[in-house]
Design a protein around this nucleic acid. Sequence first.
DNA 1: ATGGATTGCACAATCGGTTGCGCAGTGTCA
DNA 2: TGACACTGCGCAACCGATTGTGCAATCCAT
Lengths: 339, 339
Amino acid sequence: MPESAKKTTIYDLAELAGTSAGTVSAVINGNWKKRRISEKLAQRVLDLAEKHGFALNMQARALSREKSGIIGMIVPMYDNRYFSSIAQSFEARAREAGYFPIVTCTRRDPELEVAAARAMLGYQVELLVCTGATDPDRIHDLCAAAGVPTLNLDLPGGKATSIISDNFAGAFELTNRLISSCGNPNPSALFVGGRASDHNTRERINGFRESCRLHGIDVPKDNVLSCGYAAEKANVAYRSWITTNEAHPALLFVNSTISLEGLLPLIDTTANKEEKTPVVGCFDWDPFAARTRPNMIMVRQDVASMIKTLFEEIEDPSDDLRLIQIPTIIPPQTKEDLL
Amino acid sequence: MPESAKKTTIYDLAELAGTSAGTVSAVINGNWKKRRISEKLAQRVLDLAEKHGFALNMQARALSREKSGIIGMIVPMYDNRYFSSIAQSFEARAREAGYFPIVTCTRRDPELEVAAARAMLGYQVELLVCTGATDPDRIHDLCAAAGVPTLNLDLPGGKATSIISDNFAGAFELTNRLISSCGNPNPSALFVGGRASDHNTRERINGFRESCRLHGIDVPKDNVLSCGYAAEKANVAYRSWITTNEAHPALLFVNSTISLEGLLPLIDTTANKEEKTPVVGCFDWDPFAARTRPNMIMVRQDVASMIKTLFEEIEDPSDDLRLIQIPTIIPPQTKEDLL
DNA sequence: ATGGATTGCACAATCGGTTGCGCAGTGTCA
DNA sequence: TGACACTGCGCAACCGATTGTGCAATCCAT
């Protein structure tokens, strides 16, 4: 393993093996039979490559092949279980499929999303997955202009096939469970978190409302606080609600773990043992969050299925634009859920 | 914005502007003054670039400049707060510094680590940060052979500058806090999680032992269970310990949130109200985990400082190999901590 | 009007691969 | 022994940038 400060190229190898760069290239790519290179020469080249720790310059390959082997993904953030496991599964599957995955997080910042997409285009991604993008269609246009296909994950867009959770059904069932679990025929029900402008939040609100309606529970406008995702904002919105209402709601539907993070200090039963705090459901899963309250119900989005479906779509794109909804996972109902 | 299926190149732009590719290149890179291009022509080129959504082919640029602008990081996983915030901060700082960051997770799999490093070398990373790598020195060798510098983060290596938490001091102080908090002059103290083979676990064990020693607490060999990081393994190890000892320890030091995830079902006070469960400390922080028990003490690793230091080292590398230890953050002691 | 300086740009080599094409040498058969 | 096929490999153009160099045109001073 000679410590060459500079990288070994196929030309170096060619010289060492007493052959030409084209031949080395063919050998390295494993199509030396097709190009009728003798096994002896092929072996010699491979040995040299091994000995020198040779690695193909993928940039040069990408340039000449006019395809990079890179697929990109943008995600809003890494620091919650949902997006982190999306990133993790995406990478694993992409590698299996022979791609070089590049994931980057854009902190729900529309400008950063666009900048990141541009950067990825510069690095010649062959396809871009927009996860939870605030404006997937804008990114789609950008990519389309460069001839790069896109797919949407988690949040749908109007211009590319989208793979998302079945938000309505998940929210509907979660609300059913909360209602049955709170032991009150007519609880005050509150929804907190998310953006009214985004599809998922809207559908979750719809599911929440529909379940309440079927149970004869009234949900006034003020009981739906789509105040944004951030923990801070959820905290402020909830604090304001309990101040005006002078009580906690009986039933609390939280739009995501991020928002839940902001609410917990206000509803933690560990902290305020006296106060009557709500039955809490959250559209998202986290192993620790699930243990912060005696009956917290968490809906888990089926990341494995989503990624599987995503790669089916990548490897065999459907001709028409589709909206694919993946059912969520609700933990089995236990006796303890029913107070 | 004409929907050209194919990417616009500087040659296309040159033809449209009635000039040469070299000129376009100079204009795009902003050094047209240096090359004495007239402002009029420069503006014409820029307008055309804008109009066609032109993006430089970074692969081609990398090839000719012989530097890619890419810096890579490998992390063990995304799905805990520590590593996810490392990845997130790394990306943010890298972008600020004008790099294109590529992060990939290798699931603590030594082979995958090497494979990922190789792939990154293929894509011409200029520098590789090995975070929590099982064998950073092997990766260092790989990179060194290609003339690519490396830095270690979180877990130290012997061949590159390493930036890690001050594990000993953090563990020492955490143990002090646990001892003062458990209200028992001679508690049974147990350490769970991590690998005895890795530096951080060893140092944490040392800190734990040292604090116990100073408090006159005996820690038999069987009370240090470095059973691996995985939640499952911690669960099994702890379960076995409480079976043989027919009790929970009074004081439990958990090596990381990942291990904690496996232990919680066994020590959750919400679940088993009757049982006397330990005072728990964890070397790692998670906002939800912190709320799973009345007095859980979590040591937070100072990711912001670590990344800051990392980039100081990237932008102005020290000549000699260094081991930089970053102090951890322990939450202020509250009255409730003292039972 | 002439020489030198300056302006404004084009040319072409180069980076490290990929790949179509072609050529020299050997073998085979009539 | 000449035609033909087949074997084994090299040549060179190309991918899309960057950058050192050089040249024609203009300007200015003498």
